[in-house]
């Protein structure tokens, strides 16, 4: 399978999954602010963004498997660096939250934080290697 085909297969899942995710997040947040729905129904509705995240991450996993060995190694390396940053920060900050009165950071931001660092690290790796390339 070519890289382009793998990327196209990834995008075909990624875009609908992200559209559903964004709409569901905004809708659930709005419903929560407006007290439009009973609390228990919000718990059920959060299944929608969770499922869209699962669909996206499954597509990501499939994409990484379909890449050639070098591109896969680079993606995995960038992901590992991203994970190292987020886990180290979350562990340190979480410990401070337990022991001190630092501001609470919602766990919701762990995912976007991971993708932010993964993206930055992948861009830096690509620049250093003199390559154009996109993270997921």
């Amino acid at each position: 399978m070519t890289q382009k085909t793998a990327h196209r297969r990834y995008i075909k899942v990624f875009i609908p999954a992200m559209v559903i995710y964004m709409i569901s997040i905004f809708a659930i947040s709005w419903a929560n602010i407006q007290s439009y729905l009973p609390k228990y129904s919000l718990y059920f509705l959060t299944i929608i963004p969770v499922l869209s995240i699962f669909a996206w991450m499954w597509a990501q996993w499939r994409y990484v498997k379909e890449l050639d060995e070098y591109m896969r190694a680079r993606q995995v390396e960038a992901m590992m660096y991203g994970m190292m940053v987020v886990v180290a920060f979350a562990s340190g900050w979480g410990l401070m939250e337990l022991m001190t009165d630092v501001p609470r950071i919602p766990i919701f931001f762990a995912g976007p934080g991971f993708y932010l660092f993964y993206g930055i690290i992948f861009a830096v790796m690509s620049k250093r290697a003199g390559e154009k390339g996109a993270c997921l």
Binding site: M1, T2, Q3, L67, D68, E69, Y70, M71, A73, A129, E131, G133
Partner: peptide
């Protein structure tokens, strides 16, 4: 890259010594 079914970046990385290919490659 097309002949090997890998990306251009992979060929470049092997040529410039930044990556050693697997045994199958």
């Amino acid at each position: 890259g097309e002949k090997l079914d890998v990306s251009r970046q992979t060929v470049n990385a092997i040529e410039t010594g930044r990556y050693d290919p697997s045994l199958p490659l």
